[in-house]
Nucleic acid binder design. Structure first.
Length: 111
DNA sequence: AAGGTGACCGGCC
DNA sequence: TGGCCGGCCACCT
């Protein structure tokens, strides 16, 4: 076991909980982890999550609903394609009805 | 061990 | 949400 994955595992756990057709923000995950200030770190964890096929990182975006991290995906618009595939409309790297598709992680029950 | 960095967020104009 | 600045936290070299 690796303690250094402690934080990452947290993010992965939440990311894996994201239901189909739903999206969340880094801050939401960070807050769920109790480290709202480390929202940036969440993004970093997602970066490593790119190595994990089980992590739907395409469902994780910033609070503006912008596909900020699509640049880190394989294709140029892979992330956008995936979201649209789940019924989420995306235009110019921006999610339509972001709030409507917004999903907040289960904060309760973590401790 | 220290410094730099980043898929962010919140506040202000 | 449009743009800029500062803060904050963990990872990487």
């Amino acid at each position: 076991m690796k303690e250094n994955e402690n934080f990452f595992e947290r993010v992965y756990a939440i990311a894996r909980l994201i239901p189909y057709g739903k999206v969340t923000s880094y801050g939401a995950i960070a807050k769920a982890l109790g480290t709202a200030r480390s929202a940036r770190m969440v993004g970093w964890a997602m970066n490593a999550s790119g190595l994990k096929e089980d992590i739907p990182a395409h469902r994780v975006i910033n609070r503006k609903g912008l596909l900020t991290g699509k640049h880190h995906f394989q294709g140029t618009n892979l992330m956008q394609q995936l979201l649209e595939n789940e019924g989420i409309k995306v235009v110019d790297n921006q999610i339509i009805d972001f709030e409507k598709h917004f999903w907040q992680p289960e904060i309760t029950g973590f401790d």
